[in-house]
Design a protein around this nucleic acid. Structure first.
Lengths: 176, 176
DNA sequence: CTTTTTCGTATCGACCCGATACTAATACCG
DNA sequence: CGGTATTAGTATCGGGTCGATACGAAAAAG
């Protein structure tokens, strides 16, 4: 998979880590679009990630702007060019194709097992557990279209509940 | 997982790719313990891998010696120190631990699906398909303890049939 | 016996990555 | 309040990865 990532980036002379950063930012929700969250996600130091973002900014793939209420934090988002690049290069396409002969049911089971292992791994290492609102303990369903985050107190739209959050807490079904 | 690899290597100041090389060499069979096979496995160029091996050799973790019949090829094997280091650092231990609450059956199913996807991915990209003799098309069972490789014509011991081979060919159950 | 191909190495430049030191903004606490 | 501590992010430096290119030596092809 890393080899595939490398191929996807070679055209724009981007390294695998750059692709991973772009892919993360495309899926990060409003609490998670910061250098710090990205560093946590990638397992790198904030200094390293700062350099990565500097490069992506120079290339015009991401935009950086400061937070309204805490002026220390930097908010990140993909630029139009960045989104276009991601949808053109499709870094995960070949992996998705490789699963074409596997039944949806087997895929669901494998994904479920892998997700469980990942959550456990993150808990063991006291790292952040990234995940989507719709499987987060804090998510409260308000209506068909709107949810609410019990941790932050904000209303979350339907599409945003499928984005990745830094404060994700797995639903406790026996975290032995 | 890359973060875990990084942690395992930090004590000896080894990079993730060094750990991956050592882990590969620990599992490579007699046909696959060469720089070329390792480069194919890691998805890197032979030049890059040559540098990696130079470093691992200097550190005394691997040994290089030339092949008897083809004096161009270099044979690789873990040194005693290298084996000791691998068994001490246990790079995959935390991942194995993370699956402790998942039933063996679910793990088997997930592994099976992943292996299928990996093979398909490798076929799509015309890359080598690494795998163990015991699930290779060329493997002929001679007795309870000895098999035979139909491609190379050599007799393969029981333990060696569980090692990774560069010439692996998946058993054809409909490679659509 | 050439010519070509193959396996591996050497060198160079661009870049990743962590460590350290630093600035600026916020939080804490008497 | 006011001073200290903490936090988000940046700047800089050095060691090391990685691919491209060039190269040497052995084997294969013709």
């Amino acid at each position: 998979m890393r080899t595939e990532l490398r191929k996807s980036g070679v055209e724009e002379s981007l390294q695998p880590v750059h692709l991973q950063a772009l892919m993360y930012l495309a899926r990060a929700n409003r609490y998670s679009n910061t250098p710090q969250a990205l560093a946590e996600y990638l397992g790198l130091t904030k200094g390293t990630v700062s350099q990565t973002l500097l490069l992506l900014d120079r290339r015009g793939l991401v935009e950086r702007f400061e937070d309204d209420i805490d002026r220390r934090v930097v908010r990140l988002r993909l630029s139009t060019v960045g989104e276009q690049f991601l949808s053109d290069s499709q870094p995960t396409l070949s992996w998705a194709n490789a699963t074409r002969n596997i039944s949806p049911n087997r895929i669901r089971n494998a994904v479920s097992a892998l997700r469980e292992a990942l959550t456990q791994l993150q808990l063991d290492n006291e790292g952040s557990t990234f995940g989507a609102c719709n499987s987060c303990r804090q998510c409260q369903r308000l209506s068909q279209r709107v949810s609410r985050c019990g941790l932050m107190g904000d209303r979350i739209s339907g599409p945003e509940t499928r984005k990745i959050c830094w404060f994700f807490e797995p639903k406790t079904e026996e975290v032995a």
